[in-house]
């Protein structure tokens, strides 16, 4: 089976299965778990577009998660904009920040490790600035006023919020499957495999990388916006902290780098691992991240193409064409 077909089948199966969960159980722990997995999957999709498809490994996607989260929250709290519109505004702001960081970095021709390092530094700069600025709530953080109404993007039922998050993940998965079959997707693959060769063949490398970065940042920004609406609280370490840069990167690598199903598969796996570590180790800080780091090393060493790649190999071994 081709990777795209496998990703399609896997995504449809998973999403359909996930969609019926609230009909089976209304347990808060289950729904919390799933909402968080969807937020992570969305952030991971954004990272995967840039790294998995275009070969640019960002270590600072927290920048876009944070801009999406803070952008949405501040637009509704300080500018009085409707939360749904503010959510979209946050996504657009994240896209703009992505375009600016991309333009600066790619203009300086930062590749490979240099790009990773500079994105990390940008995320840290934003974290420190947000933490020090009174307008963004400073170190105390930002509390979005509780006012449960559909018009406010706040719901009494967790299931409703979960379905919206799930729908967004489905939409982005579809977008990735479409991109794989467009000229844009082919350009990104060409850039990933050999940037100089792609340029020689007439691909406008700079423009395509900026497009990928903008879209990637917007998708991860949407994850941040969802986080803000669900938890109604933000601080600089939640929005811009290294944790989300790490998780948005580890999830697609576990699931399958550069595949449309990878981010969702990886996000569910990470989330499960995180919960299990909490059950076993209790409230010791950092244990879950130790496991994520270990998993990252193991997957790179032994399973370079992640779960999706492994499934594909199994399917091929069984004789699928």
């Amino acid at each position: 089976m081709r990777q795209e077909r496998l990703s399609l089948v896997l995504s449809v199966g998973l999403l359909a299965g996930l969609a019926v969960v609230p009909l089976v159980t209304a347990a808060n722990t289950v729904l919390n778990f799933l909402v968080f997995a969807m937020i992570l999957a969305l952030a991971a999709h954004g990272w995967n577009l840039l790294a998995g498809y275009a070969g640019q490994f960002s270590f600072g996607h927290a920048a876009f998660f944070g801009v999406g989260a803070y952008g949405g929250a501040l637009l509704q709290m300080r500018a009085g904009i409707n939360p749904w519109v503010a959510f979209l505004g946050g996504i657009m702001l994240a896209g703009i920040v992505g375009a600016v960081i991309g333009a600066l970095s790619f203009r300086a021709d930062l590749r490979g490790s240099y790009f990773s390092l500079v994105t990390l530094a940008f995320a840290e700069v934003l974290r420190i600035l947000v933490n020090a600025t009174p307008a963004t709530g400073g170190a105390a953080g930002l509390l979005i006023p509780l006012d449960v109404r559909f018009a406010n993007f706040q719901f009494a039922s967790r299931a409703a919020f979960y379905w919206i998050a799930l729908a967004l993940v489905a939409l982005v998965t579809l977008l990735m499957l479409v991109i794989e079959n467009t000229r844009f997707g082919a350009y990104l693959t060409a850039i990933r495999e050999n940037e100089d060769a792609a340029r020689a063949l007439g691909v406008d490398v700079f423009a395509e990388k900026i497009k990928a970065m903008t879209l990637s940042a917007a998708i991860t920004g949407a994850a941040g916006g969802l986080y803000a609406q669900y938890f109604l609280y933000l601080d600089a370490n939640i929005g811009f902290g290294p944790w989300i840069s790490i998780e948005a990167l580890v999830a697609p690598i576990i699931g399958g780098l550069g595949t449309a199903a990878g981010p969702l598969v990886g996000a569910l796996a990470l989330q499960m691992l995180g919960e299990m570590s909490k059950t076993v180790a209790g409230r010791i800080p950092g244990i879950d991240l130790v496991l994520f780091g270990l998993l990252l090393v193991l997957v790179i060493a032994f399973m370079r193409r992640g779960v999706v790649g492994q499934l594909q190999r199994l399917a091929m071994a069984r004789g699928g064409a």
């Binding site: 070969g55 490994f57 270590f59 490979g112 490790s113 990773s116 790490i246 990167l249 690598i253 180790a281 010791i284 800080p285 950092g286 244990i287 991240l289 130790v290 994520f292 780091g293 270990l294 998993l295 990252l296 090393v297 790179i300 060493a301 370079r304």
Partner: peptide, 30 residues
């Protein structure tokens, strides 16, 4: 660890050493 895991690719080295740094930092945090 790093040599065998990286299979000679630059991005792999970066990701493996990132994985190691996450492990070390958070083990110290724990």
């Amino acid at each position: 660890v790093i040599g065998p895991a990286a299979h000679g690719s630059e991005s792999n080295v970066l990701l493996v050493t990132l994985g190691l740094s996450i492990m070390i930092e958070n083990a110290l945090l724990a």
